[in-house]
Design a protein around this nucleic acid. Structure first.
Lengths: 231, 231
DNA sequence: GTACTAACGGAACTACGGTTCCATTAAGAC
DNA sequence: GTCTTAATGGAACCGTAGTTCCGTTAGTAC
């Protein structure tokens, strides 16, 4: 959100074979320094603000351009659509922040639950997440960026579950990523589906439930050997 | 979705005190018979189809009117906005369908998990749910309709958990609604956030995890007496 | 059956999100 | 410093989602 670097680097080369000139790049790739970088940072910042205020549907790029102090032509040229901009914003949000370590699995799960709850319950962040998730339901690129975002967040916390397996606290064969996901799931379900409050107790329950289920072997990989990989 | 009856009956009388004429009702309330009912049914059906095909953002009411064989003026007059129409659609979806009863809590939770998984994994239904949830992030009325929808679905399955408490299978003081919600949560988390596949194993895990957590007392109401009610 | 009018629907209209054009600014190479 | 041209931004433009107008259709009362 603060600094900026080239986005959309994972573009799969070309959508249709033999389109336009082969070497033509997106704007912003040849001279990514000074102004270009400032524009990108300002626009992503403004996009986050606008999303948090209006939500996904009521959003138009002209408003974002105005907030960013940038011409709307620039925004349309660089990102094209609201969902395209959000995909870039998600890539920017995906950079990991160091997690706390409490030494015990239950303690780490509680810490994770509190962090997720606090993020989703925060007015600005909560709206931002809801908006981004809504956008992902409308656009494949945004959805892919969202999945990468959660992959990186889950991977960041997974070691605490893996260590618990290694020291015998959780059963052998436990899908450790799934343990971490289990902490977030009930909190997101409240945020998006039921609208139940995201209070401290909901976070505590989420961590306790994930821990109890993991100990009972609910996340041990079963039958098929298909789901070995992280998935 | 098939039959139709007056929607928006839970309208809180008037938004602003002293607006327009006091007795003027929404169109469709004075002569709700024949044509009006057919129009409503056709439009809701078409809205579901269009949502499943295009998603929430790419939707316009003129297209829905065309599919329904109805004038677009009528759609705008009756529902006004996409989110307003979706709120009505959700009210229509909220009517409960009888659930299966297997006699054991784990069996019922498994049945619920399979039902939810099948619904969300179905191409049409899955898109429909994602679209409706996306719409709910953008509009308060739609969000309220969505919450009512899940309230009714959860309430439909809650008895199996309550009976389990009564016969001592689950601890006294367990929040039985929360047990049911715990089954859906990981499946919705996959659908909306991580994009992980909604396969049979995910449903099995969801039920197993909810059961294990409930047995371990993770859903027992704690500390504060504030959360006695269903919430 | 007739009368009354709620509700519908086609067509013209409006407003605004999104695009195109081109002059201006400044990044990067030397 | 100069030169080249990538990138920006204002202004005019366009297409379509959403509105208004008003004549037509058909529920409901009698």
């Amino acid at each position: 959100m603060t600094t900026a670097q080239p986005p959309e680097t994972e573009e799969p080369d070309s959508e249709e074979p033999g389109a336009e000139e082969p070497g033509t790049d997106e704007p912003g790739t040849v001279r990514p320094g000074g102004r270009t970088a400032r524009v990108r940072a300002a626009v992503l910042r403004a996009a986050g603000d606008a999303l948090a205020e209006h939500g996904f549907a009521q959003l138009d790029l002209a408003d974002i351009a105005r907030r960013a102090g940038v011409g709307k032509t620039t925004v349309y040229r660089r990102w094209g659509t609201v969902t395209g901009l959000l995909a870039d914003l998600l890539a920017d949000m995906a950079r990991t922040s160091p997690r706390t370590e409490t030494g015990s699995l239950l303690g780490d799960l509680e810490a994770n639950a509190r962090l997720v709850r606090r993020t989703l319950a925060d007015p600005r962040q909560g709206r931002l997440f809801r908006a981004v998730i809504a956008a992902a339901t409308c656009d494949e690129r945004t959805a892919a960026a969202l999945h990468r975002f959660y992959e990186s967040r889950i991977a960041e916390w997974e070691p605490c579950a893996r260590q618990a397996v290694e020291r015998g606290e959780l059963p052998q064969g436990t899908d450790t990523h799934e343990v971490i996901r289990a902490v977030s799931a009930p909190l997101y379900y409240r945020l998006l589906a039921t609208g139940a409050p995201l209070d401290e107790e909901s976070a505590h329950r989420a961590a306790q439930a994930a821990y109890a289920a993991a100990c009972a072997g609910a996340y041990v990989r079963e039958h098929t050997g298909v789901y070995e990989a992280q998935g």
